[in-house]
């Protein structure tokens, strides 16, 4: 499937594993401390977002020129905010101490990412189904400015693909040949009310994207090599927008949360918290 194999070094993979564990611990602590939040969908995207920031996303903002040429990232599944903040802390955008203010009054770390409170966020999100369309708009703007360098990454949940706005955006990206848009679908197959297939099946998702003139890559969303390869391949697209369908498990990393819809949006009690910490250490 992939034309240009790229490799992560052994050291890089070790570092990524270590960072992924730290991020999961941070998410757990944040949600436990806030007594609310979304662990399941945050855990399913850890490897996806971490690899993006560690390897593929140019998020350096040294000066005005490099700021203009940066890649953009949009968290369309805004409820995975705890993950986003934990990753931003790993890369020095916010302090580790700040993480425990998550969801508190006046905190920069709002329940869903808010540019108003945290400036390094590209755009406030939270209401599902709008991130891809925003990404398309940014991508069109970059093209008007003849910026061939910057890519726009957007992380979508699979449940959120049930929104109509998403399909308007999928159609629009294909129509406008937005090769600078890379949509990552965290396909954990679960949503609040149950299995995605039972609630409202997405059926053959890859075919759907392909029929709207997208390149599609299907990968294991917890495998660093696969993720990195897909990102780098997608960045090379000449004509079409790219969709990376990442097969993941909701709540991945903690045995009793793994693939369990009940962990979409609840905080652990003290016993669950201690048990999860033990598993992640």
């Amino acid at each position: 499937m992939l034309k240009n194999e790229v490799c992560l070094s052994v050291e890089e993979k070790q570092k990524l594993k270590m960072m992924a564990r730290c991020i999961r611990l941070d998410i757990l602590k944040m949600v436990y401390s806030a007594k609310s939040g979304h662990i399941g969908g945050a855990f399913s995207s850890v490897e996806l977002l971490l690899t993006l920031f560690f390897k593929s996303l140019n998020h350096k903002k040294c000066d005005d020129e490099s700021y203009k040429k940066r890649d953009r990232f949009i968290l369309s599944k805004g409820h995975a905010s705890a993950l986003y903040y934990a990753v931003l802390a790993q890369f020095g955008y916010i302090s580790k101490d700040e993480l425990l203010t998550f969801r508190q009054l006046g905190s920069k770390l709002q329940g869903h990412p808010s540019k108003k409170f945290l400036n390094c966020v590209e755009v406030s999100t939270g209401s599902l189904g709008q991130g891809l369309s925003i990404a398309n708009g940014i991508a069109l703007g970059l093209k008007l400015d003849k910026n061939e360098t910057s890519k726009v990454f957007v992380l979508l949940g699979d449940g959120e693909l049930q929104e109509g706005n998403i399909w308007e955006a999928i159609m629009s990206a294909g129509h406008n040949k937005l090769n600078n848009v890379i949509a990552i679908v965290d396909k954990n197959d679960l949503q609040i009310d149950g299995k995605t297939d039972d609630v409202m099946s997405l059926s053959d998702l890859a075919s759907k994207f392909k029929s709207f003139d997208w390149n599609v890559y299907e990968i294991d969303g917890h495998n660093f090599d696969s993720i990195y390869n897909a990102y780098e391949e997608a960045k090379l697209s000449k004509e079409k927008p790219c969709c990376i369908i990442a097969n993941t498990k909701k709540g991945y990393g903690v045995s009793f949360m793994n693939n369990n819809k009940d962990w979409h949006g609840k905080a652990p009690d003290v016993n669950e918290y201690n048990k999860a910490i033990e598993e992640l250490k």
Partner: peptide
């Protein structure tokens, strides 16, 4: 939403 993206750009 696409207009918002263009504005962000």
């Amino acid at each position: 939403t696409q207009a918002c993206g263009l504005s962000l750009a």
